[in-house]
Design a protein around this nucleic acid. Sequence first.
DNA 1: TCGATGATTCCATAGATATAAAACTATGGA
DNA 2: TCCATAGTTTTATATCTATGGAATCATCGA
Lengths: 120, 120
Amino acid sequence: MESNDAVPALAALAQEHRLAVFRLLVQAGLEGLPPGQIAERLKLVPPTLSFHLAQLKHAGLVQVRRDGRSLIYTVNYDAMNGLMAFLTDNCCGAACVVPVCEPQSATIVRRRATPRARPS
Amino acid sequence: MESNDAVPALAALAQEHRLAVFRLLVQAGLEGLPPGQIAERLKLVPPTLSFHLAQLKHAGLVQVRRDGRSLIYTVNYDAMNGLMAFLTDNCCGAACVVPVCEPQSATIVRRRATPRARPS
DNA sequence: TCGATGATTCCATAGATATAAAACTATGGA
DNA sequence: TCCATAGTTTTATATCTATGGAATCATCGA
């Protein structure tokens, strides 16, 4: 992930309701959830939730598939892992543990243990 | 970390210049950097940088100490680790790797490997 | 093909945010 | 005490964002 992708992703998460939606989807796993259930749990009216889901989708943090009349939103684990790797990039000599969530699928991004010279 | 802290932290990072400042400080480690050097590297005028540093500080992501005429900004690694733990909370049965950066200091937050029942 | 359900899009408004010029504050040395 | 250096605060403006009512779109079953 690069700065160009990270800023929209962080902006998408930097909002109370969207953060709640995202975390709900993280916990829902690959099964995902339809907007109806999300709206019910988080007490959001449909247009507002739809707006927030669109932001998360546009930022690449979630995906949608259709199942009959329902749309099913799921977390994009690769995007989530990429974001966290980006935030900790070159941290403490690249020696720290890499954030990795892997719910069956998701590309694993592990940090090389290679020590790195600090920019002078 | 809780939602009340996570939203301001994410909002602080959701801006091109602040994200660049934060990553610079992550890489600078415990030594930190004064605004003058940050401004020079990122080509920011003092008031703008000062504004962004204040946002990062207010969000708890960075700290300041004074060294003579210079102020030295450093990353708050605990806040950073807390934020990433929060984002991946209850992810994939709590089986995934926890993001941890530990530059000598910083409280380590490792996830318990306890499997967790998925909400039905 | 009609009605019901699930969800999105349009739109107006209220509120929050980024920027930099000018003014101010704090520290250290002469 | 005066000056220079290092940063912050104030202020005005331009821009972006969140919200929800009303209208619209998509799918399914009868």
